[in-house]
Simulated assay, not measured.
Amino acid sequence: MGTGNGSLYDDVTQHIIAQLEEGRLPWVQPWDTSLTATGLPRNAATGRCYSGINILILWDRLFERGFGAQRWITYRQAQALGGNVRKGEAGTIVCYADRFTPKDEQQKARDEQREARQVAFLKRFTLFNVEQCEGLPEALMTMAEPRPFEELVPQAHRLIRACGADIRVGGESAFYAPSPDYIRVPDQAAFHEPINWYRTILHELGHWTGHSSRLDRLTGANLGSDDYAREELCAEMASAFLCAELGIVPTVRHADYIGGWLAVLREDNRAIFRAASQASKAAHYLLDFLPAEGGEHD
C-alpha cells in the first residue's frame, strides 16, 4: 500500500477503495486466522505506537507478508541496535505530516506585518518489520503473547468505567446522543457473544470523544450526508484501534456504510488520512484513561 513514487494520498486511497469495493475493511484484518497478536504497530527501537494512516498501511503489509510481529524499525535504527536489514528486503513507506513556510511567504508576511502562512506536506520514510532484520536484540524479535480471553473483558470494562461516559443500558439499539451527551446500549443479554457488548460500546465511545467538551469533532450532520459518513468512518476505525490495543479482535460493525465511505473517498483523496488521524486521536484519548502499559504514540 502506498509504496510507489506517485502521490501517497492517491496510492493509499485507491488501495483502500479497492478493498472496500471487495467488501473488505482494512481496519478489520483477519486476526483470528493469524498468528499475529492484536495490537497497534510500534517502533521497535522507541516503543512508540504509530498512528493514523500509518496503522492501516502497516497492518496491510503485516497481513500481506504474514509477519508475526507488530514491531517496525528504520534501516538506521536497525544498525544502531547492532543489527541490519536483510539484503533484498523491501521496506514499507509510511508518512508523517509536517509544515513549512516558503521563503517568499516569509518575506511577504514581514512586508504585510502578519504571521506567515505555513504549507502542509507529507514526509515519507521507510520501515522494515523486525522479521526482515537480523542481528537485532533477542527481546525485539520475541512475538508478544496474545492476552488470555479472561483478561480482555476486565480491561475493556476498566476503560469504559475510567472514561466517565454516561452509558445507559436498555432499549433495542445502540447510539450516542450528542446533545444530552450519553450512550445508549442494549442489555448484555441481547448480544450472542458477550464481547460484542464491549465492541459496541467502544464504537459509541468513538463518537463520544467528538463532543465539543472533548475533541470537538462532531458536526451535527444528518443521516446519509458525507459528514455523517465521515464520522461513522472515524468511529469505526477508532473502535478497531481500541479493540486491537485492548487485545480484542476487531470486527465489522457497520458494513452498510461502505457505500457512503466509498463516495467520500472517491471525492477526496485525503479523507481517509483525516479520518484515520481523527480515529487515532479518539482511540488515544480513551486509552489515556488506562494506566500506561505500552509505549507512547507517534
Rank of each mutant, 00 (worst) to 15 (best):
Q77R: 01
Q77C: 09
A78L: 05
A78Y: 09
A78F: 09
A78K: 03
Q79V: 05
A80H: 11
G82V: 01
G82L: 01
N84C: 07
N84W: 06
R86S: 07
R86K: 13
A90F: 04
G91K: 03
G91I: 01
T92H: 00
T92M: 01
T92A: 08
T92P: 00
T92Q: 06
V94W: 03
C95P: 00
Y96R: 11
A97G: 10
F100R: 00
P102N: 06
P102A: 08
P102L: 03
K103I: 04
D104L: 06
D104K: 11
E105Y: 01
E105A: 00
Q106F: 02
Q106A: 10
Q106C: 04
Q106W: 00
Q106K: 15
Q107C: 00
Q107R: 08
D111I: 01
E112P: 01
Q113N: 15
R114A: 10
A116R: 05
R117E: 15
R117Y: 02
Q118M: 07
Q118L: 02
Q118V: 04
Q118P: 00
Q118N: 12
V119K: 05
A120R: 09
A120M: 08
F121I: 03
F121H: 10
L122Q: 05
L122H: 05
K123D: 07
R124L: 06
R124K: 15
R124T: 13
F125M: 03
F125S: 02
F125A: 00
F125D: 04
L127A: 04
L127W: 13
L127F: 14
F128W: 12
F128Q: 03
N129S: 10
N129P: 08
N129R: 04
V130C: 12
V130E: 07
V130H: 02
E131K: 03
E131G: 03
E131S: 12
C133D: 12
E134Q: 15
P137H: 08
P137A: 07
A139Q: 15
L140C: 05
L140D: 06
M141F: 04
M143E: 13
M143Q: 14
A144Y: 02
E145M: 14
E145L: 11
E145G: 11
E145W: 13
P148K: 08
F149Q: 12
E150Q: 11
E151N: 07
L152H: 03
L152T: 06
V153G: 02
V153E: 13
P154W: 06
Q155V: 00
H157R: 13
L159V: 02
L159Y: 00
I160N: 08
C163P: 04
A165F: 01
A165S: 03
D166H: 12
D166G: 03
I167W: 09
V169P: 05
V169W: 09
G170P: 14
G170R: 07
G171M: 10
A174M: 06
F175E: 10
Y176F: 09
P178E: 12
P180A: 11
Y182P: 14
I183C: 08
R184Y: 06
P186E: 07
D187R: 14
D187P: 08
D187Q: 15
Q188W: 14
A190M: 11
A190K: 07
F191Q: 01
H192Q: 14
E193M: 10
E193F: 06
E193I: 08
I195P: 05
